[in-house]
């Protein structure tokens, strides 16, 4: 897995060979398989994939919110040099909110409807930082101002239902930033919002993380959002990372057949194409993942080797892809050279 990442020298988050299983009556289902990636300080890593690819599970596994019957079956998670996948419930409580902030899809369910938004933010600050109540409230007000809530001194004592969807998501961002975390995991932060509001929230998130040097793991199914926001992107398929690399390279010159099919399948605003690229079939369910490369049954370029073994993640140009085709090419070019 060396090729997973060589760019980050001193990563904020480092995930190594992470695997996650669900134990069911009909057998063990592997939802995540040998996931490895790093996120550097101030970097935005996009995680993209179709529903069921495992992108949200990766996020929840990092903050240790996997419920039974799910369990981590292997791998390590390191946060700034500290291993966090084996520190238990109490250890994780000190990390969640303080060092890793979360932003979820639906802002209405991530805020408590019975408490004023200012109190919710102040509570997070008081839990994690040694400050007085008055100081916490002042910081909450500053945060609300920073995320662009109009007239924050009046809105700090409002309840979540008094805010619109976009404003609520701003409050959630303020909450995630409250304890000045090293990393924010944003799981579909704009999916529930209209496009014009989505543009506001993306711009806000980008600006805040840039000025504070906060790293972001941005989980979304929308490749357009990734293109505008992320520095690097990981494409997931059936529980594995199939390609990871700088965002411009993955979008313009994807190396994995799934990633390139995905790029062609997205209707673009810029140029009108007569026909969208079609990937036949659908992603396999967890209980029916084929042996070898999971994408093989849908792949137009599949070769004999694909059915035999899972390809390793190998470096191809600027990105890394999990595909036998590139291994073949490497060997060929090596033979010629």
């Amino acid at each position: 897995m060396m090729a997973a990442d060589e760019t980050a020298m001193d990563p904020v988050l480092s995930v190594r060979n992470l695997s996650l299983e669900f134990v069911t009556r009909r057998g063990v289902l592997r939802a995540l398989n040998e996931i490895s990636f790093d996120i550097a300080r101030g970097e935005v890593l996009g995680v993209v994939g179709e529903s069921g690819a495992g992108k949200s599970l990766t996020g929840t596994a990092i903050i240790g919110l996997i419920d039974k019957p799910g369990r981590l079956s292997g791998g390590e998670i390191w946060l700034k040099g500290q291993r966090i996948d084996n520190i238990g419930h109490d250890g994780l409580r000190k990390i969640r909110g303080r060092r890793i902030g979360m932003i979820f899809q639906d802002p209405l369910t991530s805020l408590n409807p019975l408490f004023r938004v200012g109190d919710q933010i102040a509570e997070t600050i008081l839990t994690h930082m040694p400050v007085s109540k008055a100081e916490a409230r002042a910081r909450a007000l500053a945060l609300l101002t920073e995320v662009g809530i109009p007239a924050p001194e009046n809105r700090i004592d409002a309840y979540p239902h008094e805010f619109s969807g976009g404003m609520r998501q701003r409050v959630v961002i303020a909450l995630a930033l409250a304890a000045e975390p090293d990393l924010i995991i944003a799981d579909e932060p704009t999916t529930a919002l209209d496009v014009s509001v989505q543009a506001q929230i993306i711009t806000l998130l980008k600006r805040l993380c840039r000025t504070r040097g906060t790293s972001v793991m941005l989980i979304t199914h929308d490749m357009g959002v990734i293109a505008e926001t992320a520095d690097r992107v990981a494409v997931m398929y059936a529980g594995r990372i199939v390609e990871i690399g700088p965002v411009a390279d993955v979008i313009r010159h994807p190396k994995h057949p799934y990633a390139s099919g995905l790029m062609g399948a997205i209707p673009a605003l810029g140029a009108k194409v007569q026909r969208l690229t079609q990937i036949s079939g659908a992603m396999p369910r967890l209980n029916a993942i084929p042996p070898g490369c999971a994408f093989r049954p849908r792949c137009m370029q599949a070769i004999g080797k694909c059915a035999e073994a899972v390809p390793p993640l190998v470096r191809v140009g600027a990105t890394s892809a999990r595909c036998w085709l590139h291994e073949e090419q490497d060997e060929r070019s090596a033979a010629h050279g």
């Binding site: 014009s196 711009t203 929308d222 293109a227 965002v247 411009a248 810029g270």
Partner: peptide, 19 residues
């Protein structure tokens, strides 16, 4: 406002307000 694959890493000034 639509995020597009062609606009890698663009910064923009979105229109304020909601419906």
């Amino acid at each position: 406002a639509v995020p597009d694959l062609e606009q890698i890493g663009r910064d923009r000034i979105p229109v304020q307000g909601e419906v």
